[in-house]
Write a protein that binds this DNA or RNA. Structure first.
Lengths: 307, 307
DNA sequence: ATGGCGACATAAACTGAACTTATGACAGAG
DNA sequence: CTCTGTCATAAGTTCAGTTTATGTCGCCAT
C-alpha cells in the first residue's frame, strides 16, 4: 500500500515508473516461452525470483500482465501491449550494447571500424548486432570522426574498414557504395509546409530560414553545395538531435538525413516535405586502403551492410 | 577486479552490460547541464551518488564518458556517442511510460481512449506523451481491440474517443481521417526483390507466397480485399512483431503497415519493394459517437493527432 | 594575495531491493 | 494415485546504491 497517492508524484524520473531492463527482458522471455520457470532458467535466475520480479512489475504498473496457472503463464491483453512497448526498449538497449561493446574494445580488437558520425550513430549499432549474431567471437572496435579522420586511420593501419558519407572519396582509398542517404526537409505536422501539395523548389528552400547543423558539418556541406552556398540559417545547432528537437517543437523547417528521422516520420512527429528540383542525395560508402580488399570479419561486415 | 574475464561471459543478459535507466537518465542530464552536481540536483539525489553512478557506468562500459574538472563536466567523444544511444533507450522508455500510465488508469480516468492494435502500439504512446506535455494533469485510459470493440465502447459511453484503421466506419460513429497508413511489401536486403527496379504488379504479389498476419487481422483484410481474396501465405503469424522478425530473417517477403517498420527501414534491416497497380492504403480515423463532438482533453488529443 | 564559492573526490555507515534456498500447493498425464 | 510440471510463500543473505561528512582543487572578486 505504498502507492496510494499514485498520480501526483513530483515529476518522478522515469526509472521509478518504468521497470528496469532485466525485468523487461524477463517479461519478453515469459511471453515467448509461456512459463515463468522457463524464462527464469533462460535468464539464469531461480523461479521464485522470476515470479517476484513479474509481480513487482505488475504492482508498479498497476496492471495484471500474465495469467498464471498451474499449466503455465500467458500474457493478458494488457500484458501483450506492455510487452510490445517493452520490446522497443530492449531493442534500443541491444543497439546500445552493440555500440558500447565496439567502443570498449577500441584498442585490442580484431576488427577495427572507423565511421563518420551519422553512420556510427544510426547504422553501425544495427550492423554490429547482426555481425555478432553471425560471428559471436569477433571483437569489434569503433572510432567515430569525420571523413578525413576515417581516411587517416585507415592509411595508418589503425582501422580495417571505414564508412564515410559524402560526395568524394579520400585519395588512397577504394570504396563501394553501400547505401544512399537522402537529406530531407522536415517540419512539425502543424507547419504550413506539412500541408503543401506541390513539391518545394530549390529557390524556395534557399529563400527560407532553416534549422540547420553548424557550418562544417557533413549535412550542411551537402546542403550548401546543392543550393550553391545559399542556405539561410534560422538557428544553427551543433547536433542532429538538437535539430530534430527544434523541428519537432515547431521552430521551423529543418534539413536532416532521413536516417536520423526514420522514427519521427513513422510516428508522425515530423513530416517530410517533398522537394522538386534539388537533389540532396549522398552516397554512403565503405572504404579501405587501395589494394587491401577487406578480408575476414571486415569482409563479413561489408557483406552485411550490402544485404 | 571482478571483471577480468570480460569478453567471454555466458551470453550474459543485457541488463548486465547495459546500465539501468536511472543511470542513462543521469547521463543525459549531465550532458545537458554540463555538471554532475547539477544533474544530481535535477534527479533528486546527492552529488556523490551521481558521481559514483557515472563512475560505475564508465567501469561497466570500459570507456571514459565525461571529463571531470573543477569547473564542470563535459562529455568525451565516446561519451557523446554513448549518450546518443542512451537517448534512444530513454525515448523508448518514455513511450512505455505514457502507454503504461494510460493502461493503469483504465477505470477512473478522465479521458478514455479506445484504439485498434496498430494504432495503440505504434502511434498512441507518442501522442499521449505530447498530450501529457500539454496537459500534465489529464489522466488517460487506453483500451485496445478491433474496430468492432472500439465502436462498442464508444456507443456504451465507456470511451470518449476512438481510433480505428480500416476502410469502413462503424455505424453510429462520426469520424475524421487523421492519417493514412500504407501497407507495404518488405523483404530482407538480401532478397531478390530488394534489387528490383521495376515496381511489383498486383498479379505478381498475389502469385507469391508471403509472410502474413493471420486471417481476420486488419492488415490481412486490407490485403485480401485489394488482391481479391487471393493472398497466398508462406507462413501465417499472429503478431506484427513475429512477421517482422521472419522478414528480417530472410524467410521471404512480408506485407506490413509502414508504421510498424519505420525503424527497420531506416536502419536498412528491411527494404521496401515498390508496388505498381495495387493500392494498399487505408485511412486511420478518429471516431466518436454521432453528434458527441469531442470536447476537453479528447479534443486536445484529436488536435494533436492532426498536427 | 586571500577568502569564498562551486565543482568533484573520498570514506564510512546504512538501507533496502533482489536474490537464493527450502518448502508447500495445485493441476493434469500416465 | 503417484509423478511431474507449474506457481506461491517464507526466511535468510548479499550487495549495490545511497546519505552524511569531509577534503581538494580551480576560479573569481575583493
Amino acid at each position: 500500500m505504498t502507492e496510494v497517492a499514485e498520480g501526483q508524484f513530483r515529476a518522478g524520473s522515469l526509472s521509478h515508473r518504468v521497470p528496469e531492463l532485466g525485468a523487461l527482458e524477463l517479461l519478453l522471455a515469459v511471453a515467448r516461452l509461456g512459463s515463468l520457470g522457463g524464462a527464469a532458467r533462460e535468464l539464469g535466475i531461480t523461479q521464485p525470483a522470476a515470479s517476484s520480479r513479474i509481480r513487482s512489475m505488475e504492482r508498479q504498473l498497476g496492471v495484471a500482465l500474465v495469467d498464471r496457472s498451474p499449466r503455465g503463464s500467458r500474457l493478458t491483453d494488457a500484458g501483450a501491449l506492455v510487452t510490445d512497448w517493452a520490446r522497443r526498449i530492449v531493442e534500443a538497449a541491444e543497439a546500445f550494447d552493440a555500440g558500447a561493446q565496439a567502443l570498449r574494445d577500441r584498442r585490442d580488437s580484431r576488427l577495427r571500424v572507423a565511421a563518420s558520425m551519422t553512420i556510427a550513430e544510426y547504422l553501425l549499432p544495427g550492423w554490429l548486432l547482426a555481425l555478432r549474431a553471425q560471428r559471436p567471437d569477433t571483437a569489434v572496435s569503433l572510432l567515430a570522426g569525420n571523413s578525413a579522420a576515417v581516411a587517416e586511420r585507415l592509411l595508418a593501419d589503425e582501422a580495417d574498414l571505414g564508412f564515410v558519407e559524402g560526395v568524394s572519396v579520400p585519395t588512397g582509398l577504394d570504396s563501394v557504395v553501400i547505401a544512399h542517404d537522402n537529406l530531407i526537409v522536415v517540419t512539425a505536422p502543424g507547419h504550413v509546409w506539412a500541408r503543401r501539395r506541390r513539391a518545394l523548389s530549390g529557390a524556395e528552400l534557399a529563400a527560407t530560414p532553416l534549422i540547420l547543423r553548424e557550418e562544417g558539418s557533413g549535412t550542411r556541406q551537402v546542403l550548401d553545395s546543392a543550393l550553391g552556398g545559399l542556405a539561410r540559417p534560422l538557428i544553427e545547432l551543433s547536433s542532429t538531435t538538437a535539430v530534430k528537437a527544434a523541428a519537432v517543437g515547431g521552430a521551423g523547417p529543418a534539413v536532416l538525413s532521413e536516417l536520423a528521422v526514420g522514427e519521427e516520420l513513422s510516428m508522425r512527429r515530423l513530416v517530410s516535405v517533398p522537394l522538386a528540383d534539388v537533389s540532396l542525395a549522398r552516397d554512403l560508402r565503405a572504404v579501405w586502403p587501395t589494394g587491401h580488399r577487406p578480408v575476414g570479419p571486415a569482409r563479413d561486415l561489408l557483406a552485411l551492410t550490402r544485404g
